[in-house]
């Protein structure tokens, strides 16, 4: 994983990145009726994007490129999920009550909708945020290998041993 900024690799990553994102979206949307859903889609999305970018640019660079505040992303996802959970209560329904139905749209024809998908969206966002944060942070942390000045020479923290 020391392949940094190889132009070929960057191009390939760019090519692959969008199909992967679409794949994740597809997995997410089909989740209500077929295998898939927020968890898997989030994992695919975050895993692929973070790994590919990390490979292409190196993780420190990727962290800088993707300079989004992870805590905020997590908060956003949790907020979406919480709102869909508590929202029905504001409308006089039991908490967590989901609605669903069918809808005719001009171009797409008959489309199903379900508010449960909104909750799943919250899950998706949280998973994406967490996994991306973990991967990129760990990846970037890795770049500071021991042996580099400032890291390796540093004395260990004193530990007092037992008799």
């Amino acid at each position: 994983m020391k392949l940094k900024e190889s132009p070929v690799l960057v191009s390939i990553v760019h090519l692959v990145l969008w199909p992967v994102k679409l794949l994740a979206l597809w997995i997410f949307l089909r989740g209500h009726h077929l295998p898939g859903g927020g968890f898997i889609a989030g994992l695919v999305m975050a895993g692929a994007v973070a790994l590919l970018r990390g490979m292409a640019y190196g993780y420190e660079e990727a962290v800088r490129l993707l300079d989004i505040p992870f805590p905020a992303v997590l908060g956003l996802g949790l907020a979406v999920a919480t709102v869909t959970v508590l929202g029905p209560a504001l409308l006089g329904h039991p908490v967590m009550k989901h609605a669903f139905g069918r809808l005719s749209l001009p171009l797409l024809g008959e489309v199903e909708w379900a508010t449960a998908v909104l909750f799943d969206l919250g899950v998706f966002v949280v998973v994406v945020g967490t996994v991306k944060a973990i991967l990129l942070q760990i990846g970037a942390g890795k770049a500071r290998e021991p042996g580099r000045p400032g890291a390796g020479e540093r004395g260990a923290m004193p530990i007092r041993l037992r008799r």
């Binding site: 927020g38 799943d120 949280v126």
Partner: peptide, 26 residues
């Protein structure tokens, strides 16, 4: 309104659990 029962359990029937789960994950 969902045919994937596992997914429906996660997001609807047992949505509370999932909410806390993603909180832990966060």
């Amino acid at each position: 309104g969902g045919k994937n029962v596992v997914n429906v359990i996660l997001v609807d029937f047992r949505g509370w659990d999932t909410l806390f789960e993603i909180t832990v994950l966060s």
